[in-house]
Amino acid sequence: MKEAQYWQRKSDQCLKHSKNSFEYRQLMIEALRTHINFDAYCCTLTDVHTLFSVGAVTEQSIEAIHQEIMELEYTTEDVNRYGFLVQSGQNIGRLSDSSSRSFRYREVLMPNGFSDEVRAALIYQGQCYGFLTLFKRAENEQPLFKDQDVMLIKRLMPIMGESLKKFYHYIIEERIPAVEGEQGIVIFDKGLKILSSNTKACELLAILRKYESLAEIQVPKPIQAICAKLLADKYNSNTSLIVPIKDTGYIAIRASLLLTSQQEQQIALLINEASSREMLNFLITAYNLTPREKEVVFEVIKGIPTKEIAYNLDISIYTVQDHLKVIFQKVNVSNRNELVWKIFSRFQLD
Rank of each mutant, 00 (worst) to 15 (best):
R277Q: 15
Q224W: 00
S240T: 11
R277P: 00
G249P: 03
L214G: 03
D233H: 13
P244W: 02
L280Y: 08
E278C: 07
G249L: 03
K221V: 05
Q218D: 13
K229M: 11
C227Y: 02
S261M: 15
I267H: 05
I217K: 11
Y211W: 08
Q218V: 01
A252P: 00
E216A: 12
S256Q: 15
N288P: 05
A232I: 01
M279N: 01
K221F: 12
I223L: 14
Q266M: 12
S275N: 10
L280C: 04
L205N: 05
Y211A: 02
R254P: 06
R254W: 07
I207A: 09
R254E: 14
Q262H: 13
L270D: 13
Y211K: 12
Y211C: 04
V219A: 07
N288G: 12
I253F: 01
I207P: 03
E212H: 03
I223A: 04
L205S: 01
L231W: 06
S256G: 10
L283F: 08
V219K: 00
I207F: 06
L258R: 11
G249D: 01
Y250D: 09
S275I: 10
L258S: 09
E278I: 07
L241E: 10
V219E: 02
Q263E: 14
L214C: 05
I267Q: 04
S256V: 01
A232W: 02
I207Q: 02
L283R: 03
L231A: 08
I251M: 04
L270N: 12
I242T: 06
N236W: 12
I223F: 05
N238I: 03
V219N: 07
Y211L: 08
I253Y: 00
K229H: 15
L259E: 15
K210T: 13
K229E: 11
Q224P: 08
L283G: 01
I242E: 04
A232P: 08
I271W: 05
P220S: 04
P220R: 06
Q218H: 11
I223H: 04
E203M: 11
E203V: 02
S256H: 12
I217P: 04
A215I: 09
L257E: 10
L205E: 00
E273S: 13
I251P: 06
L270I: 13
